[in-house]
């Protein structure tokens, strides 16, 4: 386990959300783009509940934690949205790096939500943000059972 990485469960959930957003595409570039969409959707739903400034503080902390492993994410550029800074930092990096770094940011963000809100409430918010995710998981479980 990477000591600088997100908690395994949070990392797994982040990976699942990115895969869901990538809609079956597995190329590193597609997954990196999916990672951005995951972060945007989390912001869209949770900033409504936690407030823009409240959620921004969590994002900033998640980015800070991810930088320990992916130093190229750089320092806080002061952009209104941290993703703008992240995008600038990721420009020119290869797709694998971008995918991994965004996965770490998503994982840390989910990990922070779990830390503060607990796993059940975090899961509830994620279910509300991706209502089709639960059905998809159920379908996958059915297929695996067969």
């Amino acid at each position: 386990m990477d000591p600088n990485g997100p908690a395994p469960a949070a990392q797994a959930l982040a990976r699942r959300l990115m895969a869901h957003e990538a809609n079956g595409r597995t190329a590193a570039g597609d997954l990196a783009a999916a990672g951005e969409r995951v972060l945007l959707r989390l912001r869209q739903d949770l900033a409504r509940v936690l407030g823009t400034s409240g959620f921004s503080a969590l994002e900033a902390r998640a980015l800070d934690l991810a930088r320990r492993r992916y130093a190229f994410l750089g320092t806080d550029g002061g952009s209104p949205h941290f993703l703008d800074d992240a995008r600038a930092a990721l420009a020119g990096r290869d797709a694998d790096d971008a995918r991994d770094a965004l996965l770490a940011v998503c994982g840390h963000l989910i990990g922070l939500l779990v830390t503060f809100l607990g796993e059940p409430l975090t899961t509830q918010f994620i279910r509300l943000a991706w209502p089709d995710l639960a059905g998809e998981a159920a379908d996958r479980d059915k297929k695996e059972t067969r």
Binding site: A47, S53, G54, Q124, L128
Partner: peptide
């Protein structure tokens, strides 16, 4: 009730 959050009870932040 965690299950009620976002469904029966919706939190809206107006701080901004």
């Amino acid at each position: 009730d965690v299950e009620a959050v976002g469904k029966a009870i919706r939190f809206v932040n107006l701080s901004d």
